[in-house]
């Protein structure tokens, strides 16, 4: 993607009907390390790949708990993501203040959409350079909500965003029939298998670089501890990495060098 004369601000249209600043923000999201979300009838799982810039560095925080019934994982500019996660947290909190109940995920989705959209329409604003996967459970069941910097907010059965997420999406599309009735543990394994497909052949998932968040019926949102992550990774390791090469072929041509943050 190259610079052109129609990208000076989000309020500027290109003759093709595009908002280039918004498109750029979507690119930023695509360069963040990948995250995968899947829901069944009773549970929603989000898993994410945490990068460490170098060996002296701690791993990024990719998953946030925003309420007892909801959590969010982030792909893109993590600093932008934290602001959005904090926004969602205050939304949850103020809903509890008003009604003494957890916020319905649909309402959370609506608030999120409005906040994202504002930054794609007003002069001088910058769209958030992140995509989010919100996992939630409320009286309507389990939810995975995917958001993009373009303020595209969609409810998904399974979703993946971030670098090389196309490979994960391939896995998800092939196995989508199995998710609806899967148990919580099966769901985690599916999500991890999808996430593993986003990795180059020489890398693998580890307890250090993998984050798992789960929420569901009678199960408040929790970010699993490293030891628990390890147990699930053991289950994943029994599945051979069949289509690692194939996955590479399908990865988008964009993002040759992942953005460092």
């Amino acid at each position: 993607m190259f610079r052109n004369q129609y990208d000076s601000d989000v309020t500027v249209w290109s003759p093709q009907g595009r908002l280039h600043q918004v498109d750029y923000a979507v690119e930023a999201m695509k360069q963040g390390s990948a995250t995968v979300g899947i829901r069944s009838e009773t549970h929603a799982v989000i898993v994410a790949l945490k990068r460490a810039q170098n060996e002296l560095c701690s791993h990024q925080k990719k998953i946030y708990e925003i309420d007892t019934h909801s959590g969010v994982s982030i792909a893109g500019l993590l600093s932008d993501g934290r602001i959005l996660a904090r926004y969602l947290q205050t939304e949850c909190s103020s809903w509890r203040w008003d009604y003494k109940l957890p916020i319905p995920i649909k309402k959370l989705t609506e608030s999120m959409q409005l906040k994202l959209q504002a930054n794609t329409q007003y002069y001088g604003r910058r769209p958030f350079g992140v995509g989010l996967l919100v996992a939630g459970y409320d009286k309507d069941g389990a939810h995975i909500i995917q958001t993009e910097p373009s303020a595209e907010v969609v409810s998904m059965k399974a979703s993946s965003i971030g670098a090389r997420s196309q490979s994960a999406r391939t896995y998800l599309e092939r196995n989508v029939d199995k998710f609806e009735n899967a148990s919580a543990d099966e769901l985690i394994v599916h999500a991890l298998l999808a996430l593993r497909d986003t990795l180059p052949a020489e890398e693998n998932l580890s307890a250090q670089n993998t984050s798992i968040g789960i929420v569901g019926k009678d199960r408040p949102f929790t970010i699993l501890a490293d030891t628990q992550v390890g147990l699930h990774l053991d289950a994943v390791a029994t599945h051979p990495r069949s289509n690692a090469q194939q996955g590479h072929g399908q990865a988008p041509a964009a993002a040759p060098e992942p953005m460092q943050q």
Partner: peptide, 18 residues
């Protein structure tokens, strides 16, 4: 209704209390 929900008694009770 704006986000396809019907307000329930607990929520309304909480709201009116506030």
């Amino acid at each position: 209704k704006r986000f396809d929900q019907e307000i329930g008694p607990k929520a309304l009770h909480g709201y009116l209390t506030s």
